[in-house]
């Protein structure tokens, strides 16, 4: 089963939530939807798909943006924060810290939108909480 990312991007572009959040979604050449939520436009959410899941990924910051010597403390904090964050987890992809969520391919459009909104909120909250450890 392959997710129809084209269709998802189209529907996101034409959707506004009850809270007035709109989306700008572009399907990139490498098969990733780049989504900008209007309420957190500074932090883009990217959607990719595997055979069974949709992955929503928000790159947060690079390892090089962590204050020198603060990496261990930050990692410890993030590992402890991660289980408390609704619907999203924190991870490391190469040298980039990411916030990500995973949904089954069968997830309804409404729930995908909900996940994106929550992920956008989570992004701001997480960064706000650990900002002092970044350069």
């Amino acid at each position: 089963m392959e997710a129809n990312l084209d269709d998802l991007a189209f529907r996101l572009n034409n959707h506004t939530t009850d809270e007035g959040t709109g989306f700008d979604a572009v399907l990139s050449e490498n098969g990733v939807i780049e989504v900008v939520c209007s309420n957190v436009s500074e932090f883009q959410v990217n959607i990719a798909s595997t055979e069974t899941q949709l992955l929503s990924v928000t790159p947060l910051f690079l390892k090089s943006e962590v204050k020198p010597g603060g990496e261990a403390e930050l990692n410890d904090l993030l590992l402890q924060l991660s289980p408390a964050i609704p619907l999203s987890s924190i991870g490391l992809q190469g040298n980039t810290y990411i916030l990500f969520g995973a949904m089954p391919l069968e997830t309804s459009f409404e729930n995908i939108v909900h996940e994106l909104e929550v992920q956008a909120e989570n992004t701001v909250e997480v960064l706000d909480a650990i900002e002092s450890l970044l350069v």
């Binding site: 990139s28 490498n30 098969g31 990733v32 780049e34 883009q44 990217n46 959607i47 990719a48 798909s49 595997t50 055979e51 899941q53 992955l55 990924v57 790159p59 910051f61 690079l62 943006e65 991870g91 992809q93 190469g94 040298n95 980039t96 990411i98 990500f100 995973a102």
Partner: peptide
């Protein structure tokens, strides 16, 4: 596949951040 896709989903923004 997940690792590959995560990488794809992260790379474009990471290079922007960089």
């Amino acid at each position: 596949k997940t690792v590959q896709e995560l990488q794809k989903a992260t790379s474009s923004i990471s290079s922007n951040i960089a």
